[in-house]
């Protein structure tokens, strides 16, 4: 069977589908000062999984606010810098109007994913952290 670390090189999704891969990628991102990209990506996925039902509404709104405050509002943060202004406005509007759809963060997640696919993921595969691991 293919060792996990070779699968990690196939695609970002293969890497993010493996606990050890995530852990090593996080170590790399932390060193580069942009581990927030990874946490935000997972936060968006976790948010989408929360069922929109009456019992969950307060939790969903609270969580949406938490994600927004932590990653989007701080314009010096790496997630905010890599997210388009229109996407940030859209999320802000959703929260202000308390219209929290499961897809609220989808566009932002796509943009952050592109950033990882184009920059940090290829750099990770060339990094000494990954090469030493293999």
């Amino acid at each position: 069977p293919t060792p996990p670390y070779l699968k990690w090189a196939e695609s970002l999704h293969s890497l993010l589908d493996d606990q050890d891969g995530i852990s090593l990628f996080r170590t790399f991102l932390r060193r580069e000062g942009c581990a927030d990209l990874l946490d935000f990506w997972f936060a968006c996925s976790g948010f989408r999984k929360l069922e929109p039902c009456d019992a969950n509404e307060e939790k969903r709104l609270k969580l949406a606010r938490a994600i927004y405050r932590r990653y989007i509002l701080d314009t010096s943060g790496v997630v905010s810098r890599q997210t388009k202004p229109a996407t940030k406005s859209f999320i802000k509007d959703c929260i202000m109007k308390q219209q929290i759809d499961p897809a609220t963060f989808d566009q932002a997640q796509t943009e952050i994913q592109s950033t990882m696919e184009e920059n940090t993921y290829p750099s990770f595969l060339k990094s000494d952290i990954y090469l030493e691991y293999t």
């Binding site: 606990q19 968006c44 405050r69 932590r70």
Partner: peptide, 20 residues
């Protein structure tokens, strides 16, 4: 009541793959 940080951490963890 969970703090925002706890809620956020729980959300991130819920999206991670389980140990294989």
């Amino acid at each position: 009541i969970d703090s925002e940080d706890d809620l956020l951490q729980e959300c991130i963890t819920s999206a991670m793959p389980k140990k294989k």
